[in-house]
Design a protein around this nucleic acid. Structure first.
Length: 674
DNA sequence: TGTAACTCCCCTCCG
DNA sequence: GGGAGTTACA
């Protein structure tokens, strides 16, 4: 390494003391506990810039983040700081880096570099196919549905517990299926191997496996001189294992995280990773960042109150020098339409006061919680971009289109074959199966398709499918024109398959637009799976300068973001915490952290809203409206931290500061209806 | 025998 | 709005 240089003076003015210590830390393992809004991104960016200034080559830095966007932001900030190119940095998610490494070194562990990556939906489909083959889907005894089978599989792989234990602990209603599941899982792994397919979990497992090859391990160890990991509280066991294998010499590893923000245990993430880091990497230095630069005091007071009742945790309370006399608002609405109105009114009020829409965000627990609000926003011509929730690439018609490309890329991809063949009029599971079996026998050559017999009803469509595939296979066209060809072929299917063909057709044009950015079909397909466009903004291309839009986001997707004004809607028990998560204490605790993440996104103004009545489809047989309770994470003692408001027929009324408990407010509202 | 049409049920969060 | 299961038709 080059001789150490001194710390630029400008840096000392910008970074506080613990940040500076973290940035210039030497070769030993480093754990940065970074509370919400404490300048984590800044610290990592400066550390990367520091390493580069110390003579570390950019291509020898591995920066693992939660999203590709986060990696890009950090590397571009590091580029500005260091004045050197950072484009060679290995930055991205664990999955994306695994993909890249496996394409290069996969052969060493017996992996064909032409593998395709399948998402959860495809994985579930494949498990479903196997379940049918094994005759486990017969109706006499109930067997878990394919998406549940996938969840169980993923859990077993990620938490490294025996199937029996996972079933007893997390899926007690599936205990009887244990033998069948074992059989399915065995076939599943064999099938993935035969079809050259990897699921999300495999990417990590194969990367880990790669590091068990002594020669490769040494090579990768040299290649990555420094490893930095962001959002470490949301990594799982396999990811921690990868890091340990990468850093057997216990040097040059930096992890950053906040145990109070761990919100991905449903994905197998374990907060143990961050808590045990000093044990796993002996001699680790721990730097804690507690000064919050983001939020005003009253916002932090609410967040701290919510967190103060959490069980064991690492971090202390956050503090801030940013003063404000305005308390966060706790707004009780009669029902959901009123909640929508209040949010829209408030947004426009702030807009008129000079706060751009992009500086305002509405956060919610589940993607569909914003459905009604989206309608109201559209009605009032308030533009918005939504993050999280059901994603574009998961829509059936987009998956259909991509399935064609996957087939051409990897003719062994059984799941895609099923998907494509069943689109044809007159083709069901049986016919599809027989076509695939025939292809299998011939080694999956597209050329064999021409001789495959078809039921007369489907024959014409099948022949034109064969033509299209052949044209694609031999095509020298770019990815976008390949997509265009497919679109022309597939679009006529839409009216028969779906009842809203027009918007779907427009989506397909978007797929074509995205494809323009890619040179190879393979990277296009892989990116759609590993780094899908996560908002309507990503689809529209770079925004115009004067374009302004409100942000709607799930609380999960809000991680790492900040806005001047934040509205947390549906802050009622059953939504926050989600009633799916309230069966055990751990689940509730994770929901608490999630709520905490949402609250700490706000810089200046925070609004917590909830409707007193809401419509619940599940119970539509009876009274369609249920009564809601304020989220349990706000307790009566916390109420003085808020400015309370009640909405009555569209009019907002302040609640007198009389120390009224929550129950009183509700009684007051009840009286309004009578 | 295999596909289409119909009904009922359930619906988190994400790479 | 989609998946799973059931029934009706070719």
């Amino acid at each position: 390494m080059a001789q150490p240089t001194s710390i630029p003076e400008a840096w000392q003015a910008v970074l506080n003391e613990p940040q500076l210590r973290a940035v210039t830390h030497g070769p030993g393992p480093l754990l940065i506990i970074a509370g919400a809004g404490t300048g984590k991104t800044r610290t990592i960016a400066y550390r990367v810039a520091w390493l580069i200034s110390q003579g570390v080559a950019a291509e020898r830095i591995l920066l693992l983040t939660f999203t590709r966007r986060a990696a890009q932001e950090m590397t571009s900030r590091a580029r500005h700081l260091s004045g050197r190119s950072t484009s060679e940095i290995w930055g991205g998610t664990f999955h994306a880096v695994a993909n890249r490494l496996l394409r290069t070194y996969g052969r060493a562990v017996g992996l064909d570099p032409g593998f395709t990556v399948i998402d959860e939906g495809d994985a579930a489909d494949l498990l479903g196919i196997i379940r049918t083959e094994l005759g486990l889907s017969s109706k006499d005894k109930r067997f878990p549905r394919k998406s549940t089978i996938r969840e169980i599989y993923s859990k077993v792989v990620n938490v490294r517990l025996p199937l029996k234990e996972v079933l007893e602990r997390d899926f007690p209603w599936c205990v009887e299926a244990e033998a069948g599941l074992k059989e399915i899982f065995t076939r599943y792994t064999a099938r993935k191997q035969a079809k050259r397919v990897l699921d999300y979990d495999d990417l990590l497992l194969f990367w880990s496996g790669l590091l068990d090859e002594p020669g490769l391990r040494a090579q990768l160890d040299r290649q990555f001189e420094h490893v930095l990991v962001d959002e470490y509280q949301d990594t799982n066991l396999v990811q921690a294992e990868i890091l340990q294998k990468l850093r057997r010499d216990n040097r040059n590893i930096t992890v950053v995280g906040d145990d109070a923000q761990s919100i991905y245990s449903f994905r197998g993430a374990t907060v143990k990773n961050i808590l045990d880091f000093p044990k796993q990497f002996p001699g680790a230095t721990v730097v804690t960042l507690e000064e919050n630069y983001r939020s005003v005091g009253p916002v932090l007071a609410v967040a701290n109150a919510v967190m103060s009742r959490a069980r064991a945790r690492y971090t202390k309370n956050l503090w801030s020098n940013r003063q404000s006399k305005l308390l966060p608002a706790l707004i009780t609405c009669r029902d959901e339409p009123e909640q929508c109105q209040v949010v829209c009114d408030q947004i426009l009020e702030h807009l008129e006061a000079g706060i751009r829409l992009q500086e305002q965000a509405v956060l919610f627990r589940a993607g569909h919680h914003s459905d009604m609000l989206e309608v109201e926003l559209a009605r009032r011509n308030i533009p918005f971009h939504k993050y999280g929730g059901l994603r574009f690439v998961e829509a059936a018609h987009v998956k259909d289109l991509v399935a064609f490309l996957r087939i051409v890329e990897n003719p062994r991809d059984e799941v895609s074959w099923f998907r494509v063949l069943e689109l044809l009029d007159g083709v069901g599971p049986k016919t599809a199966r027989s076509v695939i079996d025939r292809l299998d026998a011939g080694g999956f050559r597209l050329a064999d398709l021409a001789s495959v017999p078809m039921p007369p009803a489907a024959d014409a469509e099948f022949r034109s499918l064969v033509e299209v595939l052949a044209a694609l296979e031999s095509s020298a066209h770019g990815v976008a024109s390949q997509v265009e060809m497919l679109r022309r072929f597939y679009e006529p299917f839409l009216p028969r398959l779906y009842d809203n063909p027009q918007p779907r057709a427009r989506d397909l044009e978007q797929v074509e637009n995205i494809a323009r950015r890619y040179r190879s079909r393979q990277s296009f397909i892989t990116d759609l799976t590993l780094d899908p466009p996560d908002s309507t903004a990503d689809l529209a291309g770079p925004p115009h300068k004067d374009e302004d839009f409100l942000i709607l986001s799930t609380m999960h997707s809000a991680k790492g973001c900040e806005w001047k004004v934040v509205y947390v809607i549906h802050a009622a028990d059953g939504m926050i915490p989600s009633d799916m998560a309230t069966e055990d204490e751990d689940g509730v605790e994770e929901e608490r952290r999630l709520f905490y993440v949402a609250l700490t996104r706000a810089k200046d103004r925070l609004y917590v809203l909830f409707p007193l009545r809401y419509y619940h489809r599940k119970y539509r047989m009876a009274d369609t409206h249920l009564y809601a309770q304020l989220t349990r994470f706000v307790e009566p003692d916390d109420l003085p931290l808020f400015e309370q408001r009640v909405v009555r027929y569209g009019t907002v009324e302040p609640v007198a500061e009389s120390g009224d408990g929550w129950t009183d407010i509700r009684a007051r509202i009840d009286r309004l209806w009578q």
